[in-house]
Every structure is written in structure tokens, then in C-alpha cells.
Amino acid sequence: MSAQLLTSGVIFGLSIGSIFFLMAIGLSLCFGLMRIISLDQLLYYSVGAYLTYSLTLVTGNVWLGVLGGVVVAGIVSFAVERLIFRRIYERELTFSMITSFGVLIGGIGVIKFFWGVVPRPVPVPLMAQIDIIGTEVPVYRLIVVAIAFLVYAGIWLFLNRTITGKAIRAGIENVEHVEGLGINVSRLFTITFIIAGALSGLAGGLHAPLIMVDPSMGLEVLAFVFMVVIIGGLGSIKGTLISAFIVGQVVSLGSLIYAPLAQMAPFAIMLLILLVKPTGLYGSPLLKR
């Protein structure tokens, strides 16, 4: 494999890993705090992508489209949390998984109704390329990676430096004890769900220029996002970031070596890590409701 191919593969892996991170962080936080498997995050990813497509058509500015996608994805996730999840938090984990899958499938139907089934292209907002070790690398992919790191820093600051963030961290350990201190946990759930939805929307908006936007785009990345969450350790932000980049690199470099590896290798890595560390890289055995 040439150095140029390798460099371009690594950059591709970093950018796809960044998208996985932005999507998986919502799933991870939702499980950590609310003990739900929120597959509907993949719907907000699609919503973010489609809003980016439509707003770009209207305004001609992809970044405005991404911003609109984030806002609308946050609003949709807020509505879903209020109307559906609030009623099922007390139920078994599988119940939330099936319900959220229902929301995802129903949402895909709504997307098909409004946008049709034909895949839609979104222009890349920045066509510039820079030279890295003799390889031309698209600047947009580097911006995606930088945004993922900024989001990680923002989430870290939120969870560690704000009282609401600390309450969420405490809730990840023990919801009942948080409530016993007079803190409205239900409000924490809503805040977390909106953050998760908005970040999934951001992932969709950023990913849109790199792929064709189509109704089932969420389902296509479902397995990868799940792997990221499991490898990183449920509820761990740091673990999710590292795991997202591992999966991104395995997909990218795997496809360069032998195309089917891109689909297969992440599963092998996941199984290997779970054999050594069943809670994932940074998962805590303390996680209990």
C-alpha cells in the first residue's frame, strides 16, 4: 500500500470515525442516564441530513443547512422524548429498544413522504484540499474531525464544569439518589435527550455532503454506531470517542486492504475487546439503575 493511499485512508477513517462519534455519543448518554437504547437517534441523523439538503437548496449555504438540521433534530428529539420516552423509562430495556426502533421506522416513512425515496446530493461546502505528506486531502474532512473534537471538548466541559452536567454524571451512577437531593431528574432526561438528538442531527448534516442522502441512511450505519457504543463502554464519552476512531480506521483501512473487511473487521475487533474487557474500553461496572 502506498503512503498516499494510507494517508488518505487514515483521513477518511478519522472523518467517518468523527461522524460515528457524533451519532454514538447520544446513544451512549441516553443509555448511561436513562437506561434506554435510543435507536431513534438514527432518525435524527437522517433528519439532520435532509434538513441540510433542503436548507442548502433554499439558502445556497451548506453550513446554514447543517445548523438548521441540528436545531430541527433537537426539536424532533424533544417531541419524541416528551410524547413517547417519558412514558416508558420505567419499562425494561428491550421495551425502549423496540419502541425506539418503531420511532425510527415510522420516522423513515415520514421522511419518504416529504422527500421521496430518491437519494439526494448535498454539495461539499469547501472544495479546497491541502497537502499532507504528499497526499491531497479534502479540507472538509479535516473540518469534520475538528468539529468532532470541539464537540468532545464541549461535552466534557458541560459534564465536568456545569452543575447540570455534574447532575447528569451523578444520574448515570444512581438516578434515585439524585432525585432524593431534590433534583428533577425528568428534566435532566429531557436535556440529555435533546443534546443527543441535536448531535445526531449534526452528524447527519456533516455527513450529508460526503454521501447521498437517502431515507434509510440511518439503518445503514446502525451496526457501526452500536459497535462504537459497545466497544467504548456504555455511558463513557471518552470511550465513545476512542472507539469511534478505532471503528472508523478499521472500516477505512480494512476496505483498502480487502473490501469485505470494511464490514467484517469492526465486528471482529468488537468481539476481541469484549473478550478482554466485557464492559468495553471505558465502561464502568458501577452502572446500575
Binding site: I163, K166, A167, R169, A170, I172, E173, N174, H177, V178, L181, G182, I183, N184, S284, L286
Partner: peptide, 18 residues
Amino acid sequence: KVFSDLTVQENLELGSYA
């Protein structure tokens, strides 16, 4: 069960939150 991932001060901060 205290909030083990938080410092003693942060545990008290949560008592002050509400």
C-alpha cells in the same frame, strides 16, 4: 452509595443544586 465519580465537593454541590 455516594456519587463515586464526583469529588466530595461536587457531591455537596449537588445537594445545593435544588
